Amino acid sequence: MESKNLVEEKTTFNSVLHPANSRGKADHGWLLSQHTFSFSNYHNPERMHFGVLRVLNDDIVAGGKGFGSHPHDNMEIISIPLEGDLAHQDSMGNTAVIKSGDIQVMSAGSGIMHSEFNKNEDRPVQFLQIWVYPKQRNVTPRYDQLTFDRSKMHNTFHQILSPNPEDEGVWIHQDAWFHLGHFDTNRTTNYTMKNSDNGVYVFLIKGTATVAGQTLNTRDGFGVWGIQHIDIHSTTEDTEILLMEVPMHLI
């Protein structure tokens, strides 16, 4: 990972910027996918992962199309639909539809098979597919999903994922916390790290914002580590931001 040192309020920390137009791109006709990190035929040795955050794919799937049944193991897989409806089936017997405002998680663990398809024939589905390395291998596979209360995200960051089954949001086998926020223009929010050894990867779903002094536009990614807290300032109306706090060291 390339990094640079920044100084904010006399605090030195490390960061890495991934502009939206620098991502890997795969266009299969039925699938348009943009990869923040190396994935499939896109390989960039400087973009293998951000700590335990291994995959951040921005996918658009054409009406009625999708991914046939395929295997996964030893990975925490998170899907966040942005538009449309995504149909899911897996070898654990789960059949579900996830839509905008939902989050889905699969702990692949010792091994699963699953498929994902656009439920609708007449419009695309757009979703973020995120993979996180687990802190335990070969756990029993599991599935979960929930619907956000979007009112809790207005001008603040709302937790949607954690390592604790009793916390708000879904949970995974990793010391990671995800938060979503939806901001009006000129709103400043401070995020305090849950673990000072972790890093945070900021993904601008839409809008523009300044994060730790760095200007970010729609679909830009910005990773920061070696910091206790971080300031986020939205600079346009209707700005949506995903924060992913993750351990920086692989086990």
Rank of each mutant, 00 (worst) to 15 (best):
K4C: 04
V7Q: 07
E8I: 11
E9V: 11
E9R: 14
E9S: 13
T11F: 14
S15D: 12
A26I: 03
A26L: 07
W30M: 01
L31F: 03
L32R: 00
Q34G: 00
T36G: 05
N44Q: 08
R47V: 07
M48G: 05
G51I: 01
G51H: 07
L56G: 09
D58A: 01
I60R: 11
G63H: 01
G64M: 00
G66S: 08
P71S: 05
N74D: 09
M75L: 06
M75C: 13
I80F: 10
D85Y: 09
L86Y: 01
A87I: 07
Q89I: 12
D90N: 13
T95E: 15
A96E: 15
Q104K: 03
M106V: 00
S107Y: 08
G109A: 07
G111P: 00
H114P: 08
F117K: 12
N118C: 08
E121A: 14
P124I: 01
P124R: 10
Q126V: 11
F127I: 10
L128E: 05
V132T: 06
P134L: 03
P141R: 08
R150G: 02
S151V: 06
H154L: 08
N155Q: 10
T156A: 12
S162W: 10
S162Y: 05
P163G: 07
E166C: 11
G169S: 11
H173D: 15
H173V: 14
H173E: 13
D175E: 09
W177A: 10
L180C: 05
H182W: 14
F183A: 04
T188M: 09
K194F: 06
D197M: 09
Y201S: 01
F203H: 06
G207N: 02
G213P: 01
L216A: 00
V224S: 09
I227K: 15
I227W: 14
I230S: 05
D231N: 05
E240Q: 04
I241G: 04
M248P: 10
H249Q: 14
